[in-house]
Design a protein around this nucleic acid. Sequence first.
DNA 1: AATGAATGAGTTTTCATTCAT
DNA 2: AATGAATGAAAACTCATTCAT
Lengths: 210, 210, 210, 210
Amino acid sequence: MGIHERKIREKEERRRQIMEAAKLVFSAKGFNRATMEEIAGEAELSPGTLYLYFKNKEELHTSLSIDILKYLTRQIRDYVDERNMSPEAKIYALRDAFINVYEYDAMVLINLFHLQAGETLKNLSGEVLQQIKEASGDALGAITSIVQEGIDQGVFVDKHPVALADIIWATYSGVVLWVDSKRLLNNEKDFVKQTLETAFDLIVAGLRNL
Amino acid sequence: MGIHERKIREKEERRRQIMEAAKLVFSAKGFNRATMEEIAGEAELSPGTLYLYFKNKEELHTSLSIDILKYLTRQIRDYVDERNMSPEAKIYALRDAFINVYEYDAMVLINLFHLQAGETLKNLSGEVLQQIKEASGDALGAITSIVQEGIDQGVFVDKHPVALADIIWATYSGVVLWVDSKRLLNNEKDFVKQTLETAFDLIVAGLRNL
Amino acid sequence: MGIHERKIREKEERRRQIMEAAKLVFSAKGFNRATMEEIAGEAELSPGTLYLYFKNKEELHTSLSIDILKYLTRQIRDYVDERNMSPEAKIYALRDAFINVYEYDAMVLINLFHLQAGETLKNLSGEVLQQIKEASGDALGAITSIVQEGIDQGVFVDKHPVALADIIWATYSGVVLWVDSKRLLNNEKDFVKQTLETAFDLIVAGLRNL
Amino acid sequence: MGIHERKIREKEERRRQIMEAAKLVFSAKGFNRATMEEIAGEAELSPGTLYLYFKNKEELHTSLSIDILKYLTRQIRDYVDERNMSPEAKIYALRDAFINVYEYDAMVLINLFHLQAGETLKNLSGEVLQQIKEASGDALGAITSIVQEGIDQGVFVDKHPVALADIIWATYSGVVLWVDSKRLLNNEKDFVKQTLETAFDLIVAGLRNL
DNA sequence: AATGAATGAGTTTTCATTCAT
DNA sequence: AATGAATGAAAACTCATTCAT
């Protein structure tokens, strides 16, 4: 491995280190109350260094979301590309992908939906907005494909597949956020998994039997 | 009408006037970028006056949410209390209540879900938190009653009614937020109504046929 | 008693009522943290009414001080005008006047010395400044007379009587403020009386024996 | 000198620079009318920078007082520790320490007594209150030692030494404040030194001859 | 590459005072 | 005379970002 590769690798590591710190701080404080100084402290770096790796606070925040979106898309694609599955089984596989991603990094996923739901979106710079748009377009596209397949095979109700994908996505984000908020409001335990399972039973029954 | 009643009425009117202005500004800018000065300007009042009616910015913001939650609860209760309806029809009525409320004041509803989803919740004072908790407890309770009735009559799938109510609520908020975010991201038009209709078809089919 | 006299009497009563409330609030909060609204509340009047009796907050505060200064001056003069006392006895009588005034209304006296010591003095309007100047000039004058008499009779050390009066006054205010501050800092009990007694023993011994 | 020492030294210098500016502004305007912006301007720094060195306005103000209290305590201790002096001479030395400190920095000393006398004390945070308490405890303790020594040697009147120290301190602060206030009220010149000299003649005579 | 001290724009909130009723 | 709603100026403090070292 040449010196050049090592440099690149080190740089990537440093990026990770910052994102890891940012994840913790954003999760604990939310976007606005999180300070770059605290993130820097958490990453054991100085504030100035953060700006060598991320253009600004917003971009740092968004990178977390883009990351998880890409991870989610990869997971979904894996299932979609597997040929020998019924559309119905694929929806359940989608559900498992959702649950996996949630369990892989709940904090970042919640961050993503906060971003999607919140005022932050309004204030995003065009460039970053574009990135988010693409990444979420990919994820939605993957879901749409599954639904489309089911419709094509006559197994699913014949509605506009994009609308159905929207509903699936909305249910996913809605459940994650709502359970998180109930956790905060009532100190309830985390029951995202169970809720998603029931939700998908409903969805599948609906898709099939409508 | 005595002088006392008129005073009270005027005071109430002034409160409304401020909330109306706040609604516009919070919707346009989000909580953080909205300034009390701008709200005051919109209400054609001085900044100081706002503080005669609301303890602080947070409380002003939250009263909007509590208001819409109460309005929503009233709407739902109206349907629940009507006896001659099948549970299934009640779910559709619930859907219509949701759509009504959305169409009555989309901006405030989105605000509510932003609040519920967002970091704001973390920073709310105990007292206000309690109010929100109660108001959303009421709404959820109303939904749970409907579901319970359906289960009791053997029409709906026999799952924990609170979990089902959670899913309905999560779908509602998820759809509203997601469509809003697609509108922002892709300049798409508002299709909350259609999406909710399809979503409830799925939900009802699910509740019935599971 | 005519209607006119009653009106005047009522007016005077209302002034008292306000000053009584102001005393409590200024003592509890200090000049800056005390609000006109709180004083009004304490007096069971509306804020606007205060301005019918006092030009502004400052004047209301200062009236308290002028009042106690006048009361103090009257007390001192009573002793000075009594002929059959040795200068030494008069100094002790002065001490008793000081103690009396302190016990009569410690809060207002402390207020006076705060005013005298504090930044408030810098910001007083010319007119009010003049009033304070006169009132404290009167009190100091009375003290000076006593000292002068002692010097004239050859009983007291022959120093500039104004300087000696200053020292007596400074000791009085210093003791009152310092004991008050020790009370606040260390939750000690009020020992102004004892301290003043010892202080005057020292002063008298000094005036005589120097 | 290493780079680390230089940094520390620079930091200390910056602190001084801010305190110097604060001293000027607080003296001219008093605590409340002084603004952080003006202090920053005087120090040729930006407002934000002040907050890197002092938690808030109050702490900046109090550090001035704590500084002068420590300086005063050091001065007094110097005299107390000198063995070959009569208690009486020590009291005169104390007087000179008082005068020295006054002449060294009258403005800050007046500020200290304002703080001690004023409403500020009521609003101090616990931590700062503690610091002030300790610093003034030290100063009072040093004075008490001197008095104690005189009592032990039978030269001074046998009264409670703490009470005597209180009187000395009260006289000091009373004289400084009263002369300052006469200066403000009557445009008189500064005669703290003379007044303190006379005051201490009285005190010493009193301590000895009572 | 990393630092971290300095910046300074931006916002909430308070409260003495006024004035229409 | 009394009210009390409305005013609006004023100031502390925060924090993303820069840049000299």
